[in-house]
Structures are given as structure tokens and as C-alpha cells.
């Protein structure tokens, strides 16, 4: 979901009620629990959950790491929308008229405990599309002698997709994943497109064979919810349609892979040239003087 830039400047309701869907793997019980939390300006939903964990209920399980929208561990379903808890302001999801917010684990992922979900299927699917550069010349790839050429436009073609943080929000929102557990899912298909778009890559035939399967890219119905919830504008929906049309072109024999050549090696680094004796530092700077009286920078007191 696109960032709500204004949200952090707004004041959330003083006290909010958080309804959490909890799951205990030992007793196999699922229940809803309510907590009251006092808020402050700029509080995120992750802060709320940690506040609960710290002050009210230590048994609540939450996963997080970076708390700044970079690691992709804190995805939860807030009010029915998969979002990163750390990037969601309380003021964005509650109002004075309705100071209640529901938090659930991500749908389409098996739950480990409470809000923690199991990602191994997701990562296995990601691995299955070979998310690494494949070159015909493996020897060259292992011991590179030069660079692979890529101009800025070609870089933009893959930059957006490389921004994926593997948060799984797209996967949890997709209606096809909801029905077909074997569907590769938006993230893995988007990554296939990223490597097919990459001019340095030569493994497009292998990758096309992987996604052109029964549970591959043709399962997608372009509902675009994946793009609507993605916190990094990676746009898996667009990527999958691009992948499909390229796959059709490939099957019908019109596909031409853009491929970059290996550039020659950069010139060897020579010996470091020592400063000539007459070279000085900036005018007015006397190094010897500094050695005698070091400059002390005073920091303001806390």
C-alpha cells in the first residue's frame, strides 16, 4: 500500500482498543483478545504491539526486526488489509469515531503462533525460479575478468523489482494463492521477470520453462491486489503481465533477449604515487601546530 505521508503528522485517538487474533499451537486454540493501549503522536502499529507485549501480555508473539520497513518481517493483517506494522501509523487505521483496530496474522500463510506466520513455502517458491544470474560461460562467471555492460535505462528496468523486501504481503492478498497452494505466487513470478529483464542474465529459457507450468504465471488473473498492497511499489501485477506477454512471444518465436557483452577489464592499478615534497596542505593549515595543540570539539551537554 502506498505510504500515507500525512499520517505521521496527525494525532491518533488517546486510547485505542486492539483486537488481536491469537493462536496457541500447543492447545490449537484460536481466539480474539482485546487490549487497551495509550497512544502518542507518531505511534506505529508495531509500537502498539510491542507496548502490549511489554506492559500487558508477554505471551503475545510478534515478529519484527528493523522497525523501519526494510526487513519485511512485520507483515500483519490490519483491519483486513495486509500491511507492514512498522510502516502503519495508528492515526492511519483508527479515528476518534472508531478507536478500534483488528490485527490478524497474514492470510494464506500457516500460522506459527499468534501473529507469526510460516514463510518456508514462500521462500521455497522464490528459490524455485532460480533467483540468481545465470551465464552460459560459467568459468567467466566464477572468475570474472571484466564487467558486464548495463546502461542506466536497463538498470531502471530491474531496479523496481529488486526493491522487494520479501514481506509476503502480495502473497497473502492474492486470490489465486488463496485457492491454489501450489501457485508460485506474485513474488516469485515477479522475480522471474526481474531476471528475464536483466540484460546480464542468460537463463531465460530455464526460467520460462519453470513459470510456464500449471501453477505458474498463467494462473494469475490480474486482480492486481498484490500491487495495491506492496509497500515498496514493486508492482508484481504489472511484472506478471509483462512476463506472460514475453512468454507468449517466446513460445510463438518472437522473443529476443537483450543481452549485454562483457567489457574488457579495467586498467590495472599502478603504484601509488607519493606526494611530492613541496606539496602542502590547505593554505593556513599548519600540521605541526595541530600536533602540539589538538583541536577539541565541544559537544553540547545532554
Amino acid at each position: 500500500m502506498a505510504l500515507d505521508i500525512e499520517a505521521a503528522t496527525k494525532l491518533p485517538p488517546k486510547v485505542i482498543t486492539v483486537r488481536v487474533r491469537r493462536y496457541n499451537p500447543e492447545t490449537k486454540k484460536i481466539w480474539w483478545q482485546e487490549y487497551k493501549v495509550e497512544t502518542h503522536k507518531g505511534m506505529t502499529m508495531l509500537d502498539v504491539l510491542l507496548d502490549i507485549k511489554e506492559n500487558t501480555d508477554h505471551t503475545l508473539a510478534v515478529r519484527y526486526s528493523c522497525r523501519m520497513g526494510l526487513c519485511g518481517s512485520c507483515g500483519v493483517n490490519i483491519n483486513g488489509t495486509p500491511m507492514l506494522a512498522c510502516q502503519t501509523q495508528v492515526s492511519q487505521v483508527t479515528s476518534n469515531a472508531r478507536p478500534v483496530v483488528t490485527v490478524e496474522p497474514l492470510p494464506n500463510f500457516p500460522v506459527v503462533k499468534d501473529l507469526m506466520t510460516e514463510f518456508s513455502d514462500f521462500f521455497n517458491k522464490h528459490r524455485s525460479v532460480k533467483p540468481y544470474l545465470i551465464r552460459k560461460d560459467t568459468e567467466e562467471q566464477e572468475n570474472p575478468k571484466g564487467h558486464l555492460k548495463m546502461n542506466p535505462e536497463e538498470f531502471i528496468d530491474i531496479l523496481q523489482f529488486s526493491n522487494c523486501i520479501f514481506c509476503g504481503l502480495c502473497y497473502s492478498s492474492c486470490p489465486v494463492v488463496a485457492a491454489d497452494p501450489e501457485y508460485l505466487g506474485p513474488q516469485a513470478l515477479m522475480y522471474t521477470f526481474r531476471f528475464i529483464n536483466d540484460v546480464r542474465d542468460e537463463g531465460h529459457k530455464e526460467r520460462f520453462a519453470i513459470v510456464d507450468s500449471e501453477h505458474g504465471c498463467h494462473r494469475c488473473h490480474f486482480a492486481a491486489t498484490c500491487s495495491a498492497v506492496c509497500p515498496k511499489a514493486v508492482d508484481p501485477a504489472g511484472a506478471i503481465q509483462g512476463l506472460r506477454s514475453k512468454l507468449f512471444k517466446y513460445r510463438l518465436g518472437f522473443f529476443k533477449k537483450k543481452s549485454s557483452e562483457v567489457l574488457s577489464a579495467p586498467p590495472e592499478k599502478g603504484e601509488r604515487v607519493p606526494l611530492p615534497p613541496e606539496a602542502t596542505t590547505l593554505p593556513g593549515v599548519d600540521l605541526k601546530q595541530f600536533e602540539k595543540e589538538p583541536v577539541v570539539i565541544k559537544l553540547p551537554k545532554e
Binding site: A2, L3, D4, I5, I156, D157, I158, L159, Q160, F161, N163, N197, A224, S227, A228, C230, P231, K232, A233, V234, D235, A237, G238, Q241, G242
Partner: peptide, 15 residues
């Protein structure tokens, strides 16, 4: 469908 762009806040998917 959207062309890939340089991602910038507020992160709207081009498609």
C-alpha cells in the same frame, strides 16, 4: 501496464 520506474515515496505501483 506500468513501465518500471525508479521507486520513490509514497511508493505507488505504476500499473
Amino acid at each position: 501496464i506500468g513501465k518500471p520506474v525508479e521507486p520513490k515515496p509514497p511508493y505507488e505501483a505504476p500499473t
